[in-house]
Design a protein around this nucleic acid. Structure first.
Lengths: 339, 339
DNA sequence: CTCACAGTTGTGACCGTGCACATGCGAGCA
DNA sequence: TGCTCGCATGTGCACGGTCACAACTGTGAG
């Protein structure tokens, strides 16, 4: 009762066809759920597939269809919680949608590195690109290489265009800022992310918008690099003057460094200084003091990101509701000013 | 002087051939750096490629060669620093070696989820798999699905077999433990990672080995789940008895949760309790107190991981030197016991 | 002068799948 | 009966590379 297996190579569609007494095209139809296949035929083919442990050859499929079913992620800082979570979420969402994902990390932020990473993705024949990186420069290079693949950025600058995902970073930043103002703070600094990250820019704008709306005078934000180290050094610098009672940091890591610097300077958080972060990394609840921050729904982010990209790819439009509004998580790093 | 471009589709090897007046096979040879191609021919072909913005079609290449040049990463907890860094490092190393990487995240640790993720990778025709996950179960499933693709784990259990990478987690754990013993601690707990992660097991073994070698009596390690939350709750539980003066935690996150619990219980770290972590996440230097921990060289890890996998794939053996020994970073979370 | 041989290039088949088109067959209808 | 029509299936080629093999050229040895 043994079936005749092809020797060296993996079983192909034709092997399945031969053993189930149909043509290769019928097998192909079974694979693609073609409507007009007799149930009995389909069952027989499926059984032979099972017996042979048949797996469709993705390369052949991609070649003949002219579509790779792969999307690329261009990422930077992929070892940090925010980007890493986004990547994971995107991968999961893509897999659910039947897509494969290939990630290219930027070695550094310079042009050559971006070019190399993009080339890597293009060689993969990705159908779309998700950018989690310093986007301004990336888009420059995209344009310059005249690559015309649909791309999506993770964060919105407020207006909804075809590329930007509608996660309202601005609303999140306003939430954080409003919280500080409501507590009574009037001298508030903003520690921003790198200026060519769109999410950094959006959070900065949210901060400025809210300050403006409440008529609180504001100073120029400090541009950081997302790291705790930067937060620490910026904190040491800022605390030499100490003309503020609260800081809104563009992510949790920089907030951590900031608190470290404050403590070294003999200040109490939140007694002498209130700090708000952004992201709600899992560690934030265990910082000392536990960090007040803004939480993003990363899995939902990933899902929408993929939905948007698939729409660009001409796929199903799918329900695509409004904006994800982040949530303020109040913990122990904020309090009314003490003076 | 315009060249004749094919209209709809991307230029193929034959388009290049036609325009440079050679056969498609010659173009193919140029692509693959075949030795016997006249320099002038090669130059001409390369120039036409440039003009046409020609990019080889990966699917076609994979199909005809029967090799996908892709490796898969099976990962869990990919939003945490350790795994995320490993993934990034592996991706970079793979790209350098001319391989593509596809990552599948485990939705959960159960069998079905592992099976689904592995299937996803196999459909991609990956040539090898790197496992950054609860490995025991993954290997079960690998065996059960009778998938015979070479695989590599990121961490060694001490002995060197073909699958395990020679990063000496055990040595790292011994370093941490020795540090505590040298400070005078005799009642030391170990907060371990999930038992079916090989790195967790290795760190636990290193702890037990060192304790044994120094004749310090030891209690059974507590099995955690890598998260700060777990560290916090475990800490609350442990501190009700408080029959220890030091804890070696299997990663930095759990150490952070632990310190949080200690502070809530009114204990001073390191005055009343010393804590050592593992990984040296970038935030560890800014914890309060800054965390003594064990640093791993992730980029090197990734490089060696790929090197090992490529060797399994029958590639070049490449220099493959000894073991990576992690490094103890002493900060402020450890001190001599106070009694 | 002839032959072996290395260097360089060309020809045609093949990899596994999907698509366009053709075919066979039975039902419904005038 | 003859025709159309829809279902179920088959035939052959295209996708864009690589591989095996053949062919042509020039050179040096016998």
């Amino acid at each position: 009762m043994t079936v005749e297996l092809p020797k060296g190579r993996a079983p192909s569609i034709r092997d399945v066809a031969r053993l189930s007494g149909v043509s290769h095209q019928t097998v192909s139809r079974v694979l693609n759920n073609h409507p007009s296949i007799k149930a009995s035929t389909k069952a027989r083919v499926l059984q032979v597939m099972e017996e042979l442990q048949y797996r469709p050859n993705r390369a052949a499929r991609a070649l003949s269809r002219g579509r790779s079913r792969t999307i690329g992620i261009l990422s930077a800082s992929s070892d940090q919680y925010g980007p890493a979570s986004s990547i994971a979420a995107i991968q999961n969402a893509a897999r659910e949608a039947g897509y494969y994902v290939n990630t290219a990390n930027l070695a550094s932020g310079d042009r050559a590195s971006i070019e190399e990473a993009l080339n890597h993705l293009m060689l993969q024949a990705v159908e779309g690109i998700v950018v989690i990186a310093p986007q301004v420069r990336v888009f420059d290079v995209l344009a310059q290489l005249s690559i015309d693949v649909p791309y999506v950025t993770l964060q919105s600058t407020g207006r909804l265009d075809d590329h930007a995902l509608s996660v309202d970073q601005i609303a999140g930043a306003r939430l954080a800022t409003r919280h500080l103002i409501d507590l009574g703070h009037r001298n508030i600094y903003h520690l921003a992310g790198p200026q060519d990250w769109i999410e950094a820019e959006a959070r900065m704008r949210g901060f400025l918008d809210e300050m403006g709306a409440r008529d609180v005078p504001t100073t120029a934000p400090i541009l950081g690099d997302w790291t705790a180290d930067f937060g620490y050094h910026a904190g040491r610098e800022l605390l030499r003057v100490r003309d503020f009672t609260a800081i809104f940091s563009s992510n949790d890591q920089m907030a951590l460094g900031l608190i470290h610097a404050a403590r070294e300077a003999g200040l109490d958080v939140p007694g002498d200084l209130s700090v708000v972060g952004f992201d709600d990394i899992p560690e934030a609840a265990h910082f000392w003091p536990p960090l007040t921050t803004v939480r993003q729904d990363f899995p939902e982010l990933g899902r929408r990101c993929i939905a948007l990209l698939l729409r660009s790819l001409g796929g199903e439009a799918e329900g695509y509701p409004g904006t994800i509004v982040p949530e303020l998580i109040v913990r122990a790093s904020t309090a009314p000013p003490s003076f």
